[in-house]
C-alpha cells in the first residue's frame, strides 16, 4: 500500500448541493472508491490516496490535474481507497463523486 497526498489550487466551483458527502465506486479489483467532502480549504482542493499500486505518483498527479482543469472544484477533500484502477476509471470516479456534491 502506498499513501499519497496532493493539494492544488482549486477552480471556480464550490460544492453547492448541501450534502455532507458523496461516494462513487467500490473498492473492488481494478476499481476504487472516492469519498468527496466539502471542506473549507481556502479555495484549494485536497486528495488523500491509499493505493495498492505503488510508484504511480506521476500518473495520479496527471489524472487529478486534468480533473481540476475540467471540473474546476474548490474547497473539497477527496479521500480515495484504490485497488489498482486504471487512470480512466480514476477520472470517471472523481467526476461521479464531484457530481454527487455539485
Amino acid at each position: 500500500m502506498e499513501h499519497l497526498s496532493f493539494e492544488f489550487d482549486g477552480g471556480v466551483h464550490a460544492p453547492k448541493s448541501g450534502k455532507a458527502y458523496a461516494v462513487a465506486g467500490v473498492v473492488a479489483s481494478s476499481n476504487l472508491e472516492v469519498l468527496a467532502q466539502p471542506q473549507e480549504l481556502g479555495g484549494r482542493v485536497r486528495f488523500e490516496v491509499d493505493t495498492t499500486a505503488a510508484h504511480f505518483q506521476d500518473a495520479w498527479r496527471a489524472v487529478i490535474t486534468d480533473f481540476i482543469e475540467r471540473r474546476q472544484p474548490r474547497d473539497v477533500l477527496f479521500s480515495i481507497n484504490d485497488f489498482a484502477a486504471i487512470p480512466p476509471v480514476v477520472s470517471l470516479r472523481l467526476d461521479q463523486a464531484w457530481e454527487g456534491l455539485e
Binding site: A20, V27, E33, Q37, D50, T51, N81, D82
Partner: peptide, 18 residues
C-alpha cells in the same frame, strides 16, 4: 465520512473501504 475501516486488512496489505 466516519472512516470506520477494518483494523485487520492492513496486516495483509489489503485495501480497506470507508
Amino acid at each position: 465520512t466516519e472512516k470506520r475501516t477494518s483494523p485487520h486488512l492492513g496486516l495483509f496489505d489489503a485495501p480497506v473501504s470507508f
